[in-house]
Design a protein around this nucleic acid. Structure first.
Lengths: 245, 245
DNA sequence: ACCCGACGTTGACGTGGATCAAAGTGCGTG
DNA sequence: CACGCACTTTGATCCACGTCAACGTCGGGT
């Protein structure tokens, strides 16, 4: 992580701002900590913001910190030698970011939108994991959730058509960002957190194909667009049909 | 899990055979247990064998046991409503099999080859996980490893050509089954543990395309085949070039 | 207001892999 | 051995998606 890119939020006396808000998030790791550990953490953690496109974890670079995502979306990408790219994961608040027990990763993490993070040094968290079984349990749960999501996407990548892929993507975003739009027949409104290029990299398609499929969903009345980003889904159920179950 | 399909190995007096061999495997969960816990486990665990194609965990069925894989290969598949299938994971001995903290799964586990397992009831392991942090740590490590593998395959599924996919698959099998064939320039010999249909489901291709690409690798001298299953790779390095890094 | 560059859309065309069809190949069984 | 069956290979054709190219749209800076 290139800390020079980061703007640290500190109090006027220079002490870092502790990310107490994490405590309230059921999937953030802080919730599993004792108040004593939280105090320890507060001395080393800091909150910061990143603009869209900023890189969090360079490829093959040493990961020197872990973070909770407070807001925004982070994309995890892998790149082949010749430049072909695939997004292998999306992390939303309040996900935990960082790979325990492994100093480096072949994965690049980038801010897909503006992102605010609460970061801690790797060493502190690694020690707390060893001391606190609850924390490890939380990590296991998030990792299992990420594994489930990855496997769902493997089906999408391997076996769905371009039309189904794009519908699946919009559906997934709808469920993440507008989760209370309700099931079956209800509508949903939200902003796509990614560019067409990112969506293409996520779905294993080209920009043009993504654009054409979005156009098709629009002309078929499955979605209504304003700015290329803002989406209104009149009937989530109808979108689900397009996603190929 | 349909226990009626399973042949339990029991001693002549009827007590089940405990899978003590797990203890020696670094990735099997038993290694993380105390001898006391192992004794407890021995009262409920049993070893059994499954023929190729047997289903271990039915889709949306309750998972009632966990298992260590003692030998063979297990495939995890997901199926869309219209029958399209995607293999989302392969587990080799001594991997752990079973999804903690979740009673059901949308994943089907099937024996890809003949498989022998050491199974325990879900309740026993779930309790031991709560008591023993070391066990949870082992689970976290395996889950992280599976996540890494899943993400590697997402790149393959989304961004590689059919030729690269097949080469990547053969390379992965070579590394799993003949790991001591050595790096760079060395040769490898092994049996493909799956049918062409399985390989196609794993790579998001059709049987015909898999067959054609294997033929191409053969005529190009990258691999040498005897029985459709037995593969000799004269130069692993040359195969790596075909896998598209 | 103007330009500019990034992003998105649309069209024409080519191709990689799917589909449909048929012919091997190996193996267990009567 | 002949048969049947499952698996694999090979060939011919088709089409979904990639590629290449042009144009449209939006937002920010001067």
């Amino acid at each position: 992580m290139n800390t020079q890119n980061l703007r640290k939020d500190v109090h006027t006396d220079g002490t870092p701002v502790v990310c107490l808000s994490c405590e309230a998030r059921h999937r953030g790791v802080c919730g599993a900590l004792t108040s004593e550990q939280l105090t320890t953490l507060s001395k080393t953690s800091y909150k910061h913001k990143l603009g869209e496109g900023h890189e969090l974890v360079g490829e093959a670079e040493k990961v020197e910190s872990y973070s909770n995502i407070l807001s925004g979306v982070v994309k995890l990408t892998k790149t082949l030698a010749d430049g072909r790219q695939q997004i292998v994961g999306l992390q939303f608040a309040p996900d935990f970011l960082g790979r325990p027990f492994k100093a480096d990763s072949e994965i690049t993490a980038q801010a897909a939108t503006n992102v605010s993070l609460c970061s801690f040094p790797k060493s502190v968290i690694d020690r707390m994991i060893r001391e606190s079984p609850g924390l490890e349990h939380k990590l296991l749960e998030q990792t299992l959730k990420e594994l489930d999501e990855a496997r769902d996407w493997m089906v999408t990548l391997g076996r769905k058509t371009a039309a189904e892929k794009v519908a699946s993507y919009i559906l997934m975003i709808a469920r993440h960002i507008d989760p209370e739009a309700g099931p079956d027949g209800a509508s949903a409104t939200f902003d796509l957190p990614m560019t067409r290029a990112d969506i293409a990299d996520f779905l294993g398609l080209t920009i043009e194909t993504v654009s054409r499929q979005i156009t098709k969903l629009r002309t078929d009345g499955v979605i209504v667009l304003e700015n290329n980003r803002h989406v209104f889904v009149p009937s989530v159920e109808r979108l689900e049909l397009r996603a190929g179950s």
